[in-house]
């Protein structure tokens, strides 16, 4: 009986991240529009877009291979599994020990790997352009993220997210320099990995510095829907991850009962709203960078991650 309850809880977590992901994207678009004194589309617009894409035909390029057709599902499932591992409203779920933070980074790496391969499949210049730049960004963002993960893991003494969050919300944590560095590194990585300004511009379509949009240019219909959903899930994952590390409040332990879970869920919604709003404000206040300035930007993240780790090696209490 307990097992079934735990499984249900795990299933709820997976559905929650899936259901909320497009909403977060919609919220960011909305807030950005309001900041520019436009009315903007409804928060529900991404859901409508997904439904519309599902109804449309898929137009496949003549020489697209099976990899091109399978990749959207692989990308989606890797991202979904990764997103389901991040504590949202509760920790210590049934399968939270399946993969730790390092595996989570690697799962996102798998999604990027297959997206880059898919964009090379048709053999267009835009696809190659996007893939090569994405892999360059990933080559710096991934170690930066891993170093931030090392910092967090050394502070909490664990790479299991549930245990990390439990430690963060306990009293022992206090304020630490290294944690601050890791969080800034994570934010930098999150901005780069989710193709946000200043690294990439999600609103443009035909611009030479585009990365993500160039990769998915040949996709249409349901395939595009899966990729868009995966991108939304990834954004939610990063916001949830930074949320549960920076503000580990309100997350229910596994045995909290329904009231605890509802409170946890409300806290989670608040964190998502806050994270989305902050991201929108940040995006409206900075300008897009040249592609070859991106390594400098990510290099800051890499160095902060390394400094955070080194500080912890010098003294466990920093």
């Amino acid at each position: 009986m307990e097992l079934i309850g735990n499984l249900v809880l795990q299933g709820v977590q997976m559905l929650v991240v899936l259901a909320l992901a497009p909403g977060l994207t919609g919220l960011i678009v909305k807030v950005k529009a309001r900041l520019m004194r436009r009315r903007g589309p409804s928060i529900l617009q991404p859901y409508r877009d997904l439904a519309r894409l599902m109804r449309k035909d898929v137009v496949l390029a003549d020489n697209a291979s099976w990899l091109f057709r399978a990749a959207p599902y692989m990308i989606f499932s890797a991202t979904w599994v990764a997103a389901a591992l991040v504590p949202t409203f509760a920790i210590g779920l049934q399968f939270s020990w399946t993969a730790d933070l390092i595996a989570l980074v690697a799962l996102l790496g798998s999604a990027r790997f297959f997206l880059a391969l898919a964009s090379l499949d048709v053999g267009t210049s835009f696809g190659g352009l996007g893939a090569s730049r994405e892999m360059m960004i990933g080559a710096i963002a991934e170690p930066a993220m891993l170093l931030a993960v090392f910092t967090v893991a050394l502070i909490a003494g664990s790479t299991q997210l549930s245990n990390v969050v439990a430690f963060m919300s306990s009293g022992e944590m206090g304020i630490r320099v290294s944690m601050g560095m890791a969080l800034i590194a994570l934010i930098i990585v999150a901005i780069a990995e989710n193709a946000r300004i200043p690294v990439d511009n999600p609103a443009t379509h035909l611009e030479l510095t585009m990365v993500h949009e160039a990769m998915v240019l040949e996709y249409s219909g349901r395939h595009l829907a899966m990729i868009e959903l995966a991108a939304a899930l990834k954004l939610l994952l990063y916001v949830a991850l930074i949320g549960c590390l920076a503000a580990p409040w309100g997350i229910a332990p596994a045995d909290a009962g329904p009231a605890g879970f509802v409170t946890g869920f409300l806290f989670f919604l608040a964190k998502l709203a806050a994270g989305g709003t902050l991201l929108a404000i940040f995006e409206t206040s900075v300008a897009k960078m040249r592609v070859f300035r991106i390594p400098d930007f990510l290099g800051v993240g890499l160095m902060l991650g390394l400094l955070g780790t080194l500080l912890l090696f010098v003294s466990r209490s920093l």
Partner: peptide, 8 residues
């Protein structure tokens, strides 16, 4: 699903 020349 329809097949068509690459969009690019």
């Amino acid at each position: 699903t329809r097949r068509a020349p690459a969009w690019d």
